[in-house]
Computed example of a mutant assay.
Amino acid sequence: MTGVREAALARRSCSKVTDAAPDSAELLDLVTAAGRVADHSSLRPWRLIEMRGEDRAILGRALNKADGKKGVSSKAMRAPVVIAVVAAYRKSKVPRWEQEAVASGVAHLLSLLLDDAGWGVFWRTGEHTRSKKVAKAHGLRKNEVLLGWLYVGGKPEKARSSHRKTIDPTAFVGRMPGAR
């Protein structure tokens, strides 16, 4: 593994992956690290749902049902492992938006860790994340919302060599109005 800065600079979404995949033990190890994200009051307002094999077909049927179609959507089969990211809100003084930020942070950190471990990762969202049929398929509770899915698989050779443009940080960092 590389340093955090180097991993962040090298990270790139990989929308097409191979059939290789991390096993459950490797995934759990990476989730242990991702779970260290900043979390006000240590609420751990998130959970992940690991989908492999037939689990992806269940997701695919739910996606099609949400579109009023039958069968299995091929979207769920685009990677050998699909990880649903769920914000699981807790009763607390910590506002819901902050709890959702924690769940998003876990997802992002996990995607960075997976990428750094050599896996191709792509975070997918969209209208189906709020579909009642998709929520039911995931077994979401009343205090939970689906934030999206991490699609995980082998990193194709082409993705290993391509580089993402870096940002100009001065375009995103400023001072308070009136500051000298």
Rank of each mutant, 00 (worst) to 15 (best):
M1V: 10
T2H: 15
G3L: 13
V4P: 12
E6S: 11
L9D: 15
L9G: 05
A10M: 07
R12F: 05
S13K: 07
S13P: 08
S15M: 08
K16L: 10
K16S: 07
V17W: 04
T18N: 03
A21G: 06
D23A: 04
S24W: 03
A25N: 04
L27Y: 00
L30D: 09
A34Y: 04
A34D: 06
R36L: 12
V37H: 01
A38W: 05
D39A: 05
P45M: 05
R47G: 07
E50Y: 00
E50K: 03
M51I: 00
R52L: 00
R52S: 03
G53P: 04
G53K: 05
E54N: 08
E54C: 05
D55L: 02
A57F: 01
A57K: 11
A62V: 08
A62W: 01
L63C: 09
K65G: 09
K65F: 13
G68L: 11
K69R: 11
K70W: 09
V72Q: 13
S73T: 15
S74I: 13
S74V: 12
K75N: 14
A76R: 03
M77D: 11
M77G: 12
A79K: 03
A79G: 07
V81D: 02
V82L: 08
V82D: 06
I83Q: 02
V85E: 01
A88P: 03
A88D: 02
R90S: 04
K93A: 08
K93S: 15
R96F: 01
E98C: 02
Q99A: 00
E100H: 10
E100P: 06
A101F: 11
V102I: 14
S104E: 02
G105N: 00
H108Y: 14
L109R: 08
L110T: 09
L112D: 03
L112Q: 03
L113D: 00
L113V: 03
L114I: 01
D116L: 05
A117Q: 06
G118C: 14
W119K: 07
W119N: 09
G120H: 05
V121R: 02
F122G: 04
W123G: 13
R124W: 05
R124N: 10
T125Q: 11
G126W: 02
G126Y: 06
T129V: 15
K132D: 14
V134W: 03
V134R: 04
A135I: 08
A135R: 14
A135V: 10
A137V: 06
L140K: 00
K142C: 02
E144N: 02
E144K: 04
L146W: 03
L147I: 09
G148V: 03
W149M: 09
W149F: 11
Y151M: 07
V152S: 00
K155P: 11
P156S: 10
P156C: 14
E157W: 08
K158V: 13
A159G: 10
R160K: 15
R160A: 13
S161P: 02
S162V: 08
H163D: 12
R164T: 14
K165L: 14
T166Y: 07
T166C: 10
I167T: 15
D168T: 12
D168V: 13
A171Y: 01
V173E: 06
G174F: 14
R175M: 09
M176P: 12
P177Q: 11
P177R: 15
P177D: 15
G178I: 10
G178M: 06
G178V: 10
A179Q: 12
